[in-house]
């Protein structure tokens, strides 16, 4: 049976891991490759690196992070943040990333989704959407870009469907209303998008406890849940999350007693 995926997200700035709260406040917390290998060992199903470097040096550092990660981590990982061209995508995939996540650049140039899917396959093109509920509306969300700073006037539902049509293989949907609040995923939003597209949906933004994880996968109908701070600050281990979800009857890949896979010979 296909398992629901648990995906830790690592925000990376100039080659170091940080985690933003509401996209603004940052705290430094370590080497991304070390942390990625730890999450792999602990049973994470996938990893997302979000590069929040502003400079081109920072971006080049990220390529090096990807190269080192590919040598240590044997689960799929996605790179997002600042990728604007086919050449940017190619560089990350060649360095060893399995997928790239496109956000602002995809909104500004939707053809990038199409070209990326054509050149590298839909399976490696994730479209990330930052969504904020439109004030005084029922069931309408607006797409934001530039790390959540710029409203676009674009409807989230329409954008998700268009992204799928252009060749996106997956949607990573972040609720800006919930991000950093620890109040739980916006499952009204997640459910709406999950039902509107036929590609997998990753829910993001707002998870604060184990029940929130379960709700994202059941009420929100997400195929995967993404979380940063609760893993990052060791509030919960991957194993605790998976044990809880399994008890709730949600299919997960159990965390193996994975002591010595490199010594099996």
């Amino acid at each position: 049976m296909l398992a629901k995926r648990i995906i830790p997200c690592l925000d990376v700035h100039e080659g170091r891991v940080v985690k933003g709260t509401n996209f603004i406040h940052l705290r430094d917390a370590g080497d991304p490759v070390e942390l990625a290998a730890l999450y792999d060992k602990e049973g994470a199903d996938e990893l997302v690196f979000l590069d929040i470097s502003a400079s081109s040096e920072g971006r080049n550092t990220m390529v090096e992070v990807v190269r080192r990660t590919a040598e240590e981590v044997f689960i799929p990982f996605t790179i997002g943040g600042g990728l604007r061209t086919i050449e940017d995508i190619r560089k990350m995939l060649r360095a060893g990333a399995d997928k790239v996540s496109l956000n602002t650049a995809a909104v500004q140039n939707p053809q990038l989704i199409e070209e990326g899917a054509y050149a590298f396959g839909s399976q490696c093109i994730v479209v990330a959407i930052d969504a904020r509920q439109v004030a005084y509306s029922h069931g309408r969300w607006e797409v934001y870009i530039h790390g959540g700073r710029t409203p676009t006037g674009i409807d989230v539902l329409e954008w998700a469907q268009r992204a799928e049509k252009l060749g996106a293989g997956e949607i990573l949907l972040t609720s800006m209303d919930r991000d950093g609040t620890k109040e739980g995923y916006d499952n009204e939003l997640n459910k709406m998008i999950s039902q509107a597209v036929s590609i997998p949906l990753i829910a993001s933004g707002g998870v604060g406890n184990l029940q929130h994880m379960a709700e994202g996968l059941t009420d929100g109908q997400a195929d995967a849940v993404l979380a940063a701070s609760i893993f990052h600050y060791r509030e919960y281990s991957i194993k605790e999350v998976k044990d809880y979800l399994a008890r709730e009857g949600i299919p997960v890949r159990p965390v193996e007693g994975r002591s010595s896979m490199f010594e099996v010979r």
Binding site: M1, L2, A3, R5, P200, D223
Partner: peptide, 10 residues
């Protein structure tokens, strides 16, 4: 079905 079949399966 959601396509692609993406994720961990037994």
């Amino acid at each position: 079905l959601k396509i692609p079949h993406m994720g961990w399966n037994t």
